[in-house]
Design a binder for these strands. Sequence first.
DNA 1: AATTTATGTCAAT
DNA 2: TTGACCTAAATTT
Length: 293
Amino acid sequence: MPEGHTLHRLATHFAKTYGGQRLRVSSPQGRFADGARLIDNRVLAVAEAHGKHLFLGFDSGAWLRVHLGLYGAWTFGDSEGEHSLGAPRQGNSEPKRLERGADGFVVAPSPTGAVRVRFVGRSGWADLRGPAACEVIDVSGKEAVQDRLGPDPLRDDADPERAWSVVAKSRTTIAALLMRQDVIAGIGNIYRAESLFRSGIEPHRPGRAVDLTEWEVLWADLTALLEDGVRDGRIITTRPEHRAQPTARPVPRSDAFYVCYRTGEPCRICSTPIKAEELAGRTLYWCPQCQSQ
DNA sequence: AATTTATGTCAAT
DNA sequence: TTGACCTAAATTT
């Protein structure tokens, strides 16, 4: 699921695999043909993530902004084999020998499906399908997007006080505030539910009923959970002692969360059935016993 | 072969 | 608060 950890993994992967390299950029599907031309045959200089946005910076000064939205995903072919990041796609395959042309660029497979963007470099290829946003912007356009984003706990420049200044004044529920990307960037439905459970906070409390200490605990926990997500490549929020199989590796999906997708199942701590409700179009999960404060 | 599902954001009611 | 949007894979007919 593409929450913030996935975007930071993407940024790292692009920087590591293609940083400093000249790339051929095309739009096999055609919908991004004009944009692709703007960054074709340029050197990738920087890759960074802010919340759920990926920014790829080129030596011309142009930036590619990608938001995966609902179904977006990148598929890669490089020294790690064929693998993908984003919405669930087919599993990874063993590293294949990359074919290279006389110019040293890899030979990518003929595109299947709706490939919005294709990158081809000397160390691999990358295909983007189904993004909600994919556009070439200049640095002021990038700044405009980032100005509308709250602090991202995975970024060095993140300032939790900025988020707190909104939360502390707001009548909106803390559950809704955590999903607002202009308050805190990178949190999705899973991190929202799981962090509130781990902090013991009742999700319907207005932001202004959350005190500073609780906020600091919540921010620190979100930061740790996101960092784990970047490391593991998936979201796991349970502590081993709360899992049905504490030693199983990899952690089975059924043991990954405290409350998410566990409607009616017994809470891992107190056995109370987990509750779920629609809140602003998304399903909110929580334990009515552990989260009664 | 058709329908459902999965997930995030935004514009229109 | 609801629907539109982007795509592929899983599930049901």
